[in-house]
Structures are given as structure tokens and as C-alpha cells.
Design a protein around this nucleic acid. Structure first.
Lengths: 231, 231
DNA sequence: ACAAAAGTGTTCGCTTTACACCCATGT
DNA sequence: ACATGGGTGTAAAGCGAACACTTTTGT
């Protein structure tokens, strides 16, 4: 076994989802290439020698978009397509995160010309294999919605029930029964009713709820599991 | 942004589970280090420049143990612990697979002194962070058992129902109700009853079943999902 | 005849589903 | 008064959980 020197670069990419105006959005940057046409891409870049993968992805995200997240989850490592990056062989570890984009306006950094939220339905063709990566992330997001209370991270701290409903409807792309949905979620006991109401134009004002994270963690420890099924 | 040359090595590791004599086993190799004490480790090694990750892990597995699998699934990429390998910074992509060890006796290759099946309960302390990796893989295996028909890959082509029962009991580490389990599995319609029976010593001979993979794929396409719950 | 393993149904409670009308506010 | 979105209950069906005796073989 003669060993030639390994010449593989290791990168990280971040898929950050946000939810705004009844639409699922994803954070993209405009890549500046020397002498190449600009293209939109997921934020990300090469891992540095002395940083962990988690550090790398958080750093890249901050540098390129100005956004910081509390939590990014490892999604998948893409390294089977040898020519996925024309600059040489690059294996990338993709992370995904979700955030309420309110007050999270991206500020372009040094690596990127621009950083923007794109509604999922309007995502342009992406650089490298990022379209595929986004697709994998989206599938994971949809799956997680059913067994983890991630919906709350995408909403404001206080939200009317209808926001949660339409979030599920939007991301899963199916209709859900309002009554059954509300009953189910409330039965978990992880939502707190506030005294505030939201009025928007006409219609009855909605009671605002907030997610009780401590209660959720407590229940989780007792073996409770968040789970929503839709036929 | 001054770029220093990236000096990170990329490796793959394989966690291969087998089921034998009512015990879950895992495939390990004895690592030969020059001037270092021998240690048991997961099969794996550095990715070569011109091969995909999947190719790499299959190649390493074949070289080190003589075993070939049809399917290895990506588990997780371990790269947050900078000193996980004392030979320098190594990020490893772990894959896991399951196999019926019958007729899969490991043959040690050039990289490894020996390769052996170890019952999970008797796994020694492993090299690097392989103990942790194995732990992650085990958790995943237990989870998958409940929503994918992987149990059948661990058994002989034809098996009595009791084998499947004890496989679940062993891997999940809990008791299961024989009647309910059988009812549930049979209700999926993915098992075929054969005309053969197995007798072992005393006791009523057991009808042998076989897994109908085509039927399963068909049903899956129609939206059917294999799912077993135990309280 | 006894020991050993395989095979088999029913009942109860809970969860899921389907479904339609009234309430509070703005215009 | 009407339009708009919020809020609510019940019945039927399906699923999961609990549970014990009979059958077939070897010794």
C-alpha cells in the first residue's frame, strides 16, 4: 500500500432556515469568484486547522452573513461526488439550523458580496451541489417537524395559534385540521397562554401563546416525546 | 483572511453489526502500530484522493476484514475533537452496516493483524474515540429497528419467528409480547411463510418465514411505513 | 407423561380522525 | 349587517396493551 499524500479539502456549509410572512426561507450568499460569474450558494467554507467543525460552521456563517445561531445540527457529509467543487476535491460537512429571522437581517461580510433570505420557492440555481444539499436539509426539516418542537424556534416568542398552524401547513405542504392540531399541541402542556391578544385588521383577536422550554425539557426527561402525525 | 494551508486528514470508519447466537456483535480489527501497544479499533482508514467516501469505506472494510457489504449508511462525521487521533488532526466519516455473519468470517488483511466479531457486551476499550462512535451507532441501530425492517438483514434468509423476536429483545434490551409482536409484523404483509419447518431438539417445529423485499419496496412506494412501537 | 418451544383471540382503553357552528372584532 | 379570522366538542374507528391456554414435537 503505497501512500500518496492525501489532497482533499474539508469544508463546512450551513443551511439556515427562517420563517417569514408564511413562507419558509433559506439564507444564501452571493459567492464572489475571481473571473467567474457570480452565483448564489450556501454560506460555508474551508475548515481551519485548529478549529472544530462546529466552530468552523459558526465562524463561516458569522463572517459571511453576520448571523449567529445557538444551535446547528449536523446534517450529512457530502463527499461522494468527486467533482462537486471545480477548485479541486472538497468534502463538505453540512449543518442545518433554524431561526426566527426577525431582527436577523444578514450583513454581508468579507467572503460574500451579499447575503439574503430567499423563499424556498424562489431559490435560484446554486453553486456546486448546493441545490442537492438544500434538498436533503428540507427533507430533514420536514421530518423533524413531526417529532421535535422546532416550530417554535421559527416563530416569535409569543405567537397566535394560527401562526403555528400555518407554519406546519407551509413547511409540510399539506392541509391540517385546525381543531385536532390545536388539541394535540395543547395536550402536550408545553405552551403557556399569555394574557395578550393579537389583533390584525378584522376578525376576533387571537390569544398569544409562548413555548415553555423548561417544561418541555422536564417532560422530555420523563420520557415524554413530542410527536405529531398526519395521515 | 490569510489562508494557511489546510492540514486535516479525512478518514472513514465502518461499524458493522452482526447477530449471532442471540447476541449482537460488532466487527473490530486489531490495529498494528509501530512501537505502540496494539489496540482494537473499528475498521477504517484514510480516504484516497480519487475515491468517493462510500468507495473508501468499502475498500477499507474489504482490506482489513475481507468482508463486503451491499449497503453502508452514513452515520455521523466526527471532527469536533481535535486530538481524537494522536497522529495529527483527523476527521472521520463513520458509516454503519448490518449483516448476517453466517459465512462472513473475517479474514485479516494487510492493515490489520486480526479482525474479529465481538459481542457488544465484550467490546474492549477501543482506539481513538471509537468507543464513542460505536455508542452512537448502537443508538442509531436501536432507533432504526423500530421504523425500518433491518432485522431481516441480520437473520438467515429463512428464519423462525422466534429468531426475529429474540433479535428485537436482544438489541432493544427489553421484553416484548410474543403475540402482539407476531400479529404486528405479520400484518405488514412483508413476510412469506415457507413450507419448511425448523426443529431444534424438543419443542414444536417452527414454521420458517422469509422476508419479501420486493413486496416491502412496493408497499413503501404506496406510502406504507414499517413501524413498531413498544411502550 | 413430561418438558420444551410454537402457535393462537379477545377485551379494554386510548388515540386519531372526521366534521360544522358560534364568537369577537373591524368596516 | 357582513366579512374576517378565532375558538370549540363529539362520535366512530382504529390501534396498542394486556393477558393464558393449546399444539406439536423430543425424551
Amino acid at each position: 500500500m503505497s501512500k500518496t499524500l492525501q489532497n482533499i479539502k474539508l469544508a463546512v456549509d450551513a443551511i439556515v432556515f427562517g420563517y417569514q410572512q408564511n413562507e419558509l426561507n433559506v439564507l444564501l450568499i452571493k459567492q464572489k469568484f475571481d473571473g467567474d460569474t457570480d452565483q448564489w450558494a450556501l454560506p460555508g467554507g474551508l475548515v481551519q486547522n485548529e478549529e472544530s467543525l462546529t466552530e468552523a460552521v459558526n465562524r463561516e456563517l458569522l463572517e459571511e452573513t453576520g448571523i449567529q445561531l445557538q444551535y446547528l445540527e449536523q446534517l450529512y457529509t457530502f463527499g461522494d461526488q468527486l467533482d462537486r467543487d471545480h477548485r479541486g476535491r472538497v468534502v463538505t460537512v453540512a449543518y442545518f439550523g433554524i431561526v426566527n429571522p426577525k431582527g436577523m437581517e444578514p450583513a454581508a461580510g468579507s467572503d460574500a458580496d451579499e447575503a439574503h433570505w430567499f423563499p424556498i420557492s424562489e431559490v435560484p440555481i446554486l453553486a456546486f451541489d448546493h441545490t442537492k444539499i438544500l434538498d436533503v436539509a428540507l427533507t430533514r426539516l420536514q421530518a423533524k417537524l413531526n417529532y421535535q418542537p422546532i416550530g417554535f424556534d421559527l416563530l416569535d416568542e409569543q405567537f397566535p395559534f394560527s401562526d403555528l398552524e400555518s407554519l406546519y401547513r407551509t413547511i409540510l405542504g399539506k392541509e391540517i385540521d385546525r381543531r385536532n392540531f390545536r388539541k394535540k399541541i395543547l395536550s402536550f402542556g408545553i405552551l403557556e397562554e399569555t394574557n395578550e391578544k393579537r389583533k390584525i385588521g378584522s376578525g376576533r383577536p387571537a390569544t398569544l401563546f409562548k413555548f415553555n422550554k423548561n417544561k418541555y425539557k422536564e417532560l422530555e426527561q420523563e420520557g415524554f416525546s413530542f410527536e405529531i402525525k398526519f395521515a
